[in-house]
């Protein structure tokens, strides 16, 4: 008798527990956070923690394996006194401005071309995605061979066609050529991102708008300015925003092609931060270099997201 009553009580407890859990999961206030929590946990672990550590390092005199002390913004002030850092600051804006500008123009042009009826359209689209798919370090190594002073296929071709004087440009050894080389490789690498995203935006524009504009007598240029461009603005804003952030923080291309040279003329924040923070052990200074533009980028992100929201609603 006693055994029987315990068994009934356990079953009842199980049922009521299951019912209570089911009831909780039915409530949006509980279910939402439960679904979000794994992603939130990963974000906290993989993004927030390293970011907070970097913030702490940047305001300390941290050196690998030694105790560190808080020194306020002294790292940020001292860095401005360094010629290499000032050069890097300038390089970052030149590199990002030129690369994003060209990627936008070429990306838009190519996307409009691929939006037309073309032979082998799918094959061409796939091929154009290749630079984005290949690991950057590997593809940049290929470019390094192409620009190499001893084996440059670019110079060999230029000389063979008679458009270069021997021995041809010293691509990685002269400051303007070196900057041109790293910008070219960044454009080559980042163009597919612009192309595919803009193409997706173009495909979503209703054909009726073009037909209506055409009926009103609008030519190709007018259709581009008054239909395509306004409707593409939100997509373009997002693409430019992402690309600006990725390009500012680029590392692989410069590290493989020039190591920041000649005379620091191609150093970017990431490459200089590695040189100072890891190769020399001054993590505090290295973190300050990598976070120097954080406030500026925050403002850019805020302004662009605000613009996108305005366009959307």
């Amino acid at each position: 008798m006693a055994i029987g009553s315990v068994g009934v009580a356990t079953v009842q407890a199980r049922v009521s527990l299951r019912a209570r859990v089911g009831e909780l999961l039915d409530r949006e206030a509980w279910l939402g956070p439960i679904f979000v929590s794994p992603a939130l946990f990963l974000l906290l672990l993989l993004v927030a923690y390293p970011f907070c550590m970097a913030l702490y390092f940047s305001v300390s005199n941290a050196f690998i394996g030694r105790p560190s002390h808080f020194i306020g913004i002294r790292n940020f002030i001292n860095l401005w006194g360094s010629d290499a850092f000032r050069q890097t600051f300038q390089n970052a804006f030149v590199f990002t401005g030129a690369a994003v500008g060209f990627k936008l123009v070429f990306g838009l042009s190519l996307a409009m071309l691929l939006n037309q009826q073309l032979w082998f359209k799918r094959l061409i689209r796939g091929a154009l995605l290749l630079p984005w798919v290949i690991p950057t370090a590997l593809s940049t190594l290929g470019w390094w061979w192409m620009f190499n002073s001893l084996y440059s296929v670019v110079n060999w071709t230029g000389l063979a066609l008679g458009i270069m004087d021997p021995p041809g440009p010293n691509w990685l050894g002269q400051r303007y050529y070196a900057m041109t080389a790293v910008v070219v490789v960044n454009i080559w690498r980042g163009l597919p991102f612009f192309l595919i995203t803009i193409l997706a935006g173009l495909v979503s524009i209703p054909r009726e708008l073009y037909e209506a504009a055409e009926a009103d007598g609008a030519g190709p240029v007018a259709r581009f300015w008054h239909v395509t461009l306004p409707l593409l603005k939100p997509v373009l804003a997002i693409v430019v925003l992402f690309s600006t952030i990725f390009t500012f923080s680029d590392f692989n291309i410069v590290y493989v092609l020039t190591h920041g040279g000649p005379i620091n003329s191609t150093h970017l924040f990431a490459t200089l931060a590695r040189q100072v923070g890891l190769e020399t052990g001054r993590i505090g200074e290295g973190a300050a270099i990598s976070l120097y533009l954080f406030p500026v980028l925050m403002i850019v992100v805020w302004a662009q997201l605000r613009f996108v929201r305005k366009q959307a609603y």
């Binding site: 002073s149 001893l150 010293n170 691509w171 050894g173 002269q174 070196a178 020039t258 000649p262």
Partner: peptide, 21 residues
């Protein structure tokens, strides 16, 4: 020397010697 030395990495001088330049 040639101006190319301005762009060399640590392996370039080896390669210049090995390829006979």
């Amino acid at each position: 020397m040639e101006p190319e030395v301005l762009s060399w990495d640590d392996a370039s001088n080896n390669q210049a010697m090995q390829q006979g330049k």
